[in-house]
Simulated scan of single mutants.
Amino acid sequence: MKPLKRMTKQRKIILDVLQSTTCHPTADWIYEQARKELPDISLGTIYRNLQHLVQEEEIQELNYGSTFRRFDGNTGLHYHFVCRSCGQVMDVDMPVLRDLNGEAAQVVGGLVEDHRLEFYGICRSCLDKNQGIEEKKECLT
């Protein structure tokens, strides 16, 4: 069992921001939202606390390369869809394939404890626009 870590005011606000949205925001977006509660909070504080919350498994970090880090307040096992056109990241509402862990374990000959799965393609909004380009969603900037 992990020792309990102190939940600072800044950490609590960041966690609340993440748990109140489903848009998988960037640190910059979280910073803008947190400033509504704590105007003097710094971007460095946001980054430090995000890393702490990831290490404590309070949130998930979705890392899609050096320029594409997003955060998710939902720590339960679930899948994501990433739009290659607008960059939106969304949860995929489908059952988690728990048997996949066992199948992978047989192939690798070891213990598979968890898995992460992302789907990539073009979201409905981009398809509907017929040109494949959508203005960035509010939480992507």
Results as ranks from 00 to 15, higher is better:
Pro3Cys: 05
Pro3Gly: 06
Leu4Arg: 14
Arg6Gly: 04
Thr8Cys: 07
Lys9Thr: 12
Lys12Phe: 07
Lys12Ala: 15
Lys12Val: 08
Ile13Gly: 00
Leu15Arg: 11
Leu15Ala: 06
Asp16Tyr: 04
Asp16Ser: 14
Asp16His: 08
Val17Asp: 00
Leu18Lys: 07
Gln19Val: 01
Gln19Ala: 03
Ser20Gln: 13
Ser20Pro: 04
Pro25Phe: 03
Thr26Arg: 09
Thr26Val: 07
Asp28Ile: 12
Asp28Val: 12
Trp29Arg: 05
Ile30Asn: 01
Glu32Leu: 13
Glu32Arg: 12
Gln33Leu: 10
Gln33Val: 09
Arg35Ala: 09
Lys36Gly: 05
Glu37Asp: 13
Glu37Met: 11
Leu38Pro: 01
Pro39Tyr: 08
Ile41Val: 15
Ser42Thr: 15
Ser42Met: 03
Ser42Asn: 10
Ser42Ile: 02
Leu43Trp: 06
Gly44Lys: 13
Gly44Arg: 13
Thr45Pro: 00
Ile46His: 00
Tyr47Phe: 12
Asn49Tyr: 07
Leu50Pro: 00
Gln51Asn: 15
Gln51Arg: 15
Leu53Asp: 02
Leu53Gly: 01
Val54His: 00
Val54Tyr: 03
Gln55Leu: 13
Gln55Val: 06
Gln55Ile: 07
Glu56Ala: 08
Glu57Gln: 15
Glu57Trp: 02
Glu58Gly: 01
Ile59Asn: 01
Ile59Ser: 02
Leu62Val: 05
Leu62Asn: 03
Tyr64Val: 00
Phe68Ile: 03
Arg69Glu: 05
Arg70Gly: 02
Phe71Ala: 00
Gly73Trp: 00
Thr75Trp: 06
Leu77Gln: 05
His78Ala: 08
His78Pro: 02
His80Glu: 08
His80Val: 04
His80Tyr: 15
Phe81Ala: 06
Phe81Tyr: 10
Val82Thr: 07
Cys83Asp: 05
Arg84His: 07
Ser85Lys: 03
Cys86Tyr: 04
Gly87Asp: 04
Val89Asn: 00
Met90Gln: 07
Val92Asp: 01
Val92Thr: 09
Met94Leu: 12
Pro95Gly: 09
Val96Arg: 01
Arg98Ala: 10
Asp99Ile: 05
Asn101Glu: 15
Asn101Phe: 08
Asn101Met: 15
Gly102Pro: 01
Glu103Thr: 08
Ala104Lys: 10
Ala104Phe: 15
Ala104Gln: 10
Ala105Gly: 10
Ala105His: 10
Val107Asn: 09
Gly109Cys: 13
Gly109Thr: 13
Gly110Ala: 13
Gly110Phe: 07
Val112Glu: 02
Glu113Met: 07
His115Gly: 04
His115Cys: 04
His115Thr: 02
Arg116Trp: 11
Leu117His: 09
Phe119Gln: 05
Phe119Asn: 05
Tyr120Ser: 10
Ile122Thr: 08
Lys129His: 10
Asn130Met: 09
Gln131Ala: 06
Gln131Thr: 11
Gly132Ser: 10
Glu134Trp: 07
Glu134Gln: 13
Glu135His: 08
Glu138Asn: 13
Glu138Ser: 13
Thr141Arg: 14
Thr141Trp: 10
